[in-house]
Design a protein around this nucleic acid. Sequence first.
DNA 1: AATGGCCCCAACCGCCGTTTC
DNA 2: AGAAACGGCGGTTGGGGCCAT
Length: 237
Amino acid sequence: MDFKKEETLRKGPWLEEEDERLVKFITLLGERRWDSLAKVSGLKRSGKSCRLRWMNYLNPSLKRGPMSQEEDRIIFQLHALWGNKWSKIARRLPGRTDNEIKNYWRTHSRKKEEAQNYDKVIEWRGNTGEELLHNYKETEITRTRTTSHEHGFVEVVSMESGKETNCGICGRESYGFMNSPYENRISDWISEISTDQSEANISEDHSSSSSENNINIGTWWFQETRDFEEFSCSLWS
DNA sequence: AATGGCCCCAACCGCCGTTTC
DNA sequence: AGAAACGGCGGTTGGGGCCAT
């Protein structure tokens, strides 16, 4: 372990400049190899920190704003079924992160327990998982049939009874993300980078790029690490 | 206006499973 | 096959903002 490197890693709240840089490099390199991305971007952040920032805040597919009544209901019902399986619950609510749901639940669970009666949950206790799912399907789907369809609720139930798919409970078309000026800027950067790619200095001769010093980013090839770093700086400036 | 308490949420930490070399 | 790196997950923390006093 390189102690000096660890020592210079930044922690705490992200700066706007850091966000900008992170978004640019994720657009270039994709959502993977976070440690490499953190290093090559020049961000004094751990790969893990970069990943978290993207997953929980910068990702444009995230839904912003307060939880709807529908989401609230779903969170509490799924938590009653699965417990603290936040990521599993989050997969049923596209645009919401496990962190967000976890925070929301922690904040509201106490109030909820006091304010609401949990007749349904209590009634379900002692049942098997299949019975729980059956009850869940019978009671909730029927009660919310009108809105359920527009939110893809039926598909969720079919998932729970067997196959996992990528569909979720809430329809993306109803999202209100990209509301703040900051979020709009992030969206703009992504668009700009897509356009900029056609103007970048790209080596087309992939076959000749077999040196181990070459860096391959999608269809982009850099012959030296230095070339890539210079290119990176040009994106930043 | 000052302050103390509470709420909210972004970010970190540690662990563990998976992937890569 | 095994070690190292990576990524995902759930728990926890710290700080900013709001509100009542």
